[in-house]
Amino acid sequence: MAATLTETAVDKSTAVDGSYAARISHVSKSFGRPGAQQLVLDDITIDVAPGEFVTLLGASGCGKSTLLNLVAGLDKPSAGEIEVPGGRPALMFQEHALFPWLTAGKNIELALKMRGLAKSERRDEAERLLELVRLKGAYGKRVHELSGGMRQRVAMARAIAQDSQLLLMDEPFAALDAITRDVLHDELTRIWRETQLSVLFVTHNVREAVRLAERVVLLSSRPGRIAREWEVDIPQPRRIEDSAVADLSVEITEQLRGEIRRHGQH
């Protein structure tokens, strides 16, 4: 089991053959009326390989959430192209966005139903997904009966229920307390390796980015441009307090601060 995991971990980093889970090529996005347009994203090009975990890192105003919305198909780019061959990507928000009128299990089943899974199979599949996020027995629980961390795990199960190749995550743990966030990092790493999903994860937390990703993409702000990329070859599972994680975080933070400083200079 462990062997197969490391094997897939090796060959998914080689995306030279042209296969990709998402291809963002020369994407720009501006908002506002013609004539008074504000450029939010400028010429962004990112390929996410199948099974790869990429974090998009940036300060406020770098357009990282805008970029996720574009990849999710909730908005259209002003220029450039986005290709997602695996179908509609799954998206997790900072808020759990679970429907309070449904139980945890039924929330997942709704995603299964929308995906077209037969009614007879939905219940079992929902139970299986709850087990994947270690919430066995939470099927009949209402959303308000769950803690913040449990809600985000149900949201994760719902996202995986879409059976998409690509999981987009928009600062999904930003509202959680540090202990819960730490546990969910472990959880997400485990689930990512088990499901072999491709993940595009947006955050403004440098440590989180390094803790999770195989590749960290730093965006500059206003407009969002790719400032630099880092391959993270620290072996998983990692800890947020690992010294290797800390070292790379210091390096990235320096660069990030440099990007932010530029905005104060004029």
């Binding site: 808020e95 966005a97 429907f99 995603a111 929308m114 229920a161 879409q162």
Partner: peptide, 25 residues
């Protein structure tokens, strides 16, 4: 609006969006 966005993400659009998201919400 978050519910409507979440609904669209999981594919509940059009009639399904009204039936499964908008009306219960």
């Amino acid at each position: 609006p978050l519910y409507l966005r979440a609904g669209r993400v999981i594919g509940a659009t059009g009639f399904n969006g009204v039936r499964h998201v908008l009306l219960p919400a």
